[in-house]
Design a protein around this nucleic acid. Structure first.
Length: 215
DNA sequence: ACATTAATTGTGT
DNA sequence: ACACAATTAATGT
């Protein structure tokens, strides 16, 4: 079994979940699931029956408008979870968002029946769930601020920085079109802004590649 | 190694 | 925003 593996992941990526018995429970009921880059992990309108603890890779959460345009909400990175999953599970509601694997991603899936049980059983679990909500709210507010108050050039920089941070890499493998979808801008606008950033020695551009230069 | 094709990026209006 | 040009990467022969 991959129990030992799960245990190892939990200890390295989720040190907050400190209780030994909790770690053991996660190891025994959690399933390791992998997704390929581009896979839709959870679509809008579908029911969720488990909660993900992300081990590696990157997941993008998006919202969809009536015309089918996607707008970027936030990234879910290693050491994080999806608060939407948590709520949906407990309330047995459909998902309001779509999550897509941005990179090849590995996560531990916890069946919903345990999530609730552990809330009263383990202090570290409860605290961590609360912390996750807080973090998710912060990330959402950041995105709202970006959409509401920032110009496109600032949004682009924030987007690139955020992604680099979540990926633990200064090199992003993406296209101008992809970024444009996320920011719901035109591809040309993104291309031109990126070219500006390159002239300002903020990034180096390549095909399917953006390297962010450290300042 | 070369030619062909598809995808991505650049530019002018 | 659109049309199209240029460039780059991928694929077949």
């Amino acid at each position: 079994m991959d129990n030992a593996l799960v245990l190892n992941y939990i200890r390295t990526k989720y040190p907050q979940l400190a209780e030994k018995s909790l770690q053991d429970e996660i190891a025994s009921v959690g399933k390791v699931i992998t997704f390929k880059s581009g896979d839709i992990i959870l679509d809008i309108g579908s029911y969720i029956k488990s909660m993900p603890l992300i081990i590696s890779g990157l997941i993008k959460a998006v919202r969809e408008d009536s015309e089918g345009n996607e707008i970027f909400l936030y990234y879910l990175a290693d050491g994080e979870t999806c608060s939407m999953s948590f709520t949906c599970c407990l309330m047995n509601k459909k998902s309001e968002i779509r999550t897509i694997a941005e990179e090849d991603t590995m996560l531990i899936s916890i069946p919903s029946k345990y999530m609730d049980e552990w809330m009263s059983k383990y202090a570290s679990w409860r605290n961590w769930v609360m912390k996750s909500y807080e973090l998710r709210m912060k990330e959402l507010l950041k995105t709202i601020d970006s959409i509401a108050f920032q110009k496109m050039d600032e949004r682009l920089i924030a987007y690139l920085q955020n992604k680099a941070e979540k990926l633990h890499s200064k090199i992003l493998h993406t296209t101008h079109q992809e970024i444009a979808y996320d920011l719901n801008a035109s591809r040309e606008a993104v291309s031109r802004l990126l070219k500006q950033l390159e002239n300002d020695h903020y990034v180096v551009l390549g095909r399917n590649k953006i390297e962010i230069l450290t300042k």
